[in-house]
Write a protein that binds this DNA or RNA. Structure first.
Lengths: 362, 362
DNA sequence: TATGGTCTTGTTATCGGTAACAGAAAGCAC
DNA sequence: GTGCTTTCTGTTACCGATAACAAGACCATA
């Protein structure tokens, strides 16, 4: 009507005169602009942009043409507010530099991206107070699901999450007291499995190398799995070696070798609580001229890169990080469909199988 | 006033009767609910939640108390729509399973989280068509900055980005033709530096191992840096070895050793285009009884984990991935402050220094 | 020709906040 | 007491989309 100052801007402004409120300088085009140029109502434009709505083919084409011409990009913030669906899935991870978590994240991302969902990442640095802050920030974004690793939550985190009414999925570890859904594996069962494999392969004097402060979590579960397998086979269940406080490192593993040779010199196999310390043991054995696996077999947990590169290769428990991500994604989609259909779904518990990776060290 | 059906829900509904529009069942509390209970206007609640607005201390306390009691969580979607600030920074990475990118991401995240910004991650799988899709999805979220690695963009990606009016930052690589800001290092200069170091250490017959299809990008820049150093020192600049098409792998490196010994048997040092293929060369040399570095010195590029674990350790170019993330974050904050102050800022170019990591292999 | 269904499009009223402005109250100098 | 800041709070009008309902056009059927 009366804006001719920007000839290259196809009539994008000029809606109603606004005596008050905010100025609208040279804004991006809105749906209304598209509507005007295509000679339809904004609602029809909105419908033309979705698969599910009925719009005459010819109308849709005309609208898409206008959209392309003026370079309209829909505003998902406005869309989210109006539809009350943010299109986000929040995921809180302890660290982004961990290749296992990166695998999980990337599989999850791939899965949910197919359904036009985006991930919102937070990282907690393995600290539950930071997790609380991250969860709070996430909730402000109204995600459609929240994915967390379990490593203990603060009471406030639990309260916030449970009051949110948003589906919660704890992954990797299986908490004793889950908040809602779980996608993970049992550390106990995995340790039992690899220990059984060692026994089956003929080892009879087995030791466990763990962390001194394995308070209730992973470490303890792995030790218990080891012990159960050893006991069921009628073997000596006293060879428990504790090195340092969590998290245990390569050098802790290296140092542990001496203690082992001193206390139980006839030990023929060690199951170490994680790959890095198992690798430390292997290196130290090489240095001392102890042959692996002939003098001493060594197994680890986690299938870290280091175990693949070591010589000999490290026998270990492989966790399918990718599968955790995929299954979490599947669960989210399933919950979403159910919610749309109005169904109420009980807390799901998805088990992710682990595998025993037998390599040269046993 | 008149809703007593849900005694546990503190008066959250009951605004106006709505004959039309959407139903509001048992919704989350809104700002208006807080306002009513604290006896102020919604605007005052909004102000009480920010640091910068003037609210009487007593009023703010009362409001925060109500917020805590009813468990109100602000809706950042609505906030974003109204304020036209999404609070997002978008970052597109080729892969999340790359520890360098993970470091960059994590540093960037740390930096911008201090300013109440959240990262929005997309991953492109090293494919520019996927990048286009990801960028489109990002733009719908109206991020306050977009961070990308450079690896070639489609024309449409370039157009979308440039029309968006959002600050764009390309990181890691320095494109010849940047879209906007850049935070990265020069592959040419880095290669020149490590080659010079080899020369300075006394090596005189240097070869380069690269990819056959290093079309314009990293590989070529590294080769040119190598050549410049060799030429300036007056040495033989013909020893260029090409193995396989990008990306070059460990086994390509291993295979290249034979060719090298055949064509230029007196070569005393190799600069390989990346760590994995350099590692492959080291392994092959060990197998063949070629002593590293006495018979042949080897250097790589990138400071991958594998170069740290190899024996001997791999001399390489270290890129400070963390610094890239930090500086990108700093730049974003700076641009943001400038934009608020109404300043217009020219395209920035931030250089990230690399380092030469001399280890046992040279 | 009246009736009912399907397909397509428009109208209205929000979603839950915040920008911009206005105005009241309080403090201060003269 | 007047005029001028400064501090605090309220009012109004949006931000840019979509849910829910309504209604017109068109067709087939009875």
């Amino acid at each position: 009507m009366s804006n001719s100052e920007k000839p290259d801007e196809p009539d994008a402004n000029g809606v109603k005169p606004r005596s008050r409120g905010r100025a609208r300088p040279n804004r991006r085009p809105r749906m209304e602009d598209v509507a005007r140029l295509a000679n339809v109502s904004p609602m029809t434009v909105s419908r033309a942009l979705r698969y599910d709505s009925p719009v005459a083919e010819e109308t849709r084409k005309r609208i898409l043409k206008v959209i392309d011409e003026i370079g309209y990009v829909p505003d998902q913030i406005a869309s989210g507010l109006s539809s009350q669906r943010s299109g986000f899935v929040a995921i809180c991870l302890p660290s982004l530099n961990n290749s296992h978590f990166a695998d999980t994240l990337s599989a999850l991302n791939r899965r949910i991206a197919e359904h036009d969902l985006q991930v919102l990442i937070g990282h907690t640095d393995y600290r539950s107070d930071k997790e609380e802050k991250v969860v709070e920030a996430m909730l402000r974004r109204r995600p459609e699901a929240i994915v967390l690793t379990y490593d203990g939550h603060t009471p406030r985190t639990r309260a916030l999450l449970q009051a949110s009414g948003i589906p919660i999925i704890e992954i990797w570890e299986q908490p004793k007291d889950p908040l809602d859904h779980v996608v993970g594996f049992s550390n106990h069962a995995a340790s039992y499995a690899i220990t059984s494999r060692l026994i089956q392969d003929g080892y009879t004097r087995l030791a466990f190398l763990g962390e001194a402060t394995d308070d209730g979590s992973r470490g303890a579960a792995r030790r218990e799995g080891f012990l159960q397998a050893v006991r069921e086979a009628g073997l000596d269940d006293t060879r428990l070696l504790y090195a340092a406080r969590a998290p245990i490192t390569m050098s802790d593993g290296a140092r542990a070798v001496a203690g082992l040779r001193e206390t139980w010199p006839d030990t023929d196999a060690v199951f170490a609580v994680s790959d890095p310390c198992a690798f430390g043991m292997i290196s130290e054995c090489l240095r001392l001229g102890i042959s692996v696996p002939d003098d001493l077999a060594i197994a680890g947990f986690g299938d870290f890169e280091i175990g693949r590169l070591s010589l000999p290769g490290l026998t270990t428990v492989g966790v399918d990080a990718d599968a955790i991500g995929r299954k979490t994604g599947d669960l989210i989609i399933e919950l979403r469909n159910a919610a749309r259909a109005g169904d109420i779904i009980a807390a799901q518990h998805v088990d992710v199988p682990i595998s025993i990776l037998k390599r040269g060290s046993s």
